[in-house]
């Protein structure tokens, strides 16, 4: 068959033929679900702040409780159903980070507890920590030089 398209032309043709995501609808879902998760976080923060705990303790407790909820929802096969609708709304909060650790832990147990569960746990979270920590070290170094 004679080539009708160059690769670039074909790519444009495919884009025209492929349905786009419903951006407005997806954003609305992300906004609402992300907003709700953060509001729950605010509730936890307000609760412990009202009991006179110091600010840093409160923020640690908030993270830990949200992570616990997310891991439970992941284990019960519910977090992926939320994510299907919510998209970034359930990916971007710390609960999404917890889901990205719990889901491979559950999935790859079949390949053993060390190289399966233990190692694959960090397929998504690993890069997040690598680049997050490294970036904070760079910022810290600049701060150190400036003071």
């Amino acid at each position: 068959m004679n080539q009708q398209f160059t690769k670039d032309e074909y790519s444009k043709f495919v884009d025209k033929k492929s349905p786009n995501s419903h951006l407005a609808k997806d954003m609305a879902w992300a906004f609402i679900v992300g907003g709700i998760i953060c509001t729950i976080g605010q509730g936890i923060m307000n609760f412990f702040t009202a009991r006179g705990l110091p600010k840093e303790t409160v923020s640690s407790i908030t993270s830990i409780l949200l992570i616990l909820i997310a891991v439970i929802l992941t284990a019960l096969d519910l977090y992926d159903s939320i994510g299907k609708r919510a998209g970034a709304g359930s990916v971007v909060p710390i609960t999404g980070f917890a889901n990205s650790i719990a889901s491979p832990a559950i999935e790859y147990k079949t390949e053993g507890y060390v190289m399966g569960l233990g190692a694959k746990m960090f397929t998504v979270a690993g890069p997040v920590l690598v680049y997050g920590i490294s970036a904070s070290i760079v910022v810290g170094f600049i701060y150190f030089l400036m003071h």
Binding site: L23, D26, M27, W29, A30, F31, I32, V33, G34, G35, I37, C38, T39, G41, G87, A88, G89, V91, V92, P93
Partner: peptide, 9 residues
């Protein structure tokens, strides 16, 4: 939180 997640979307 909603706005940050919507940017992610």
């Amino acid at each position: 939180g909603g706005i940050i997640c919507a940017i992610g979307q």
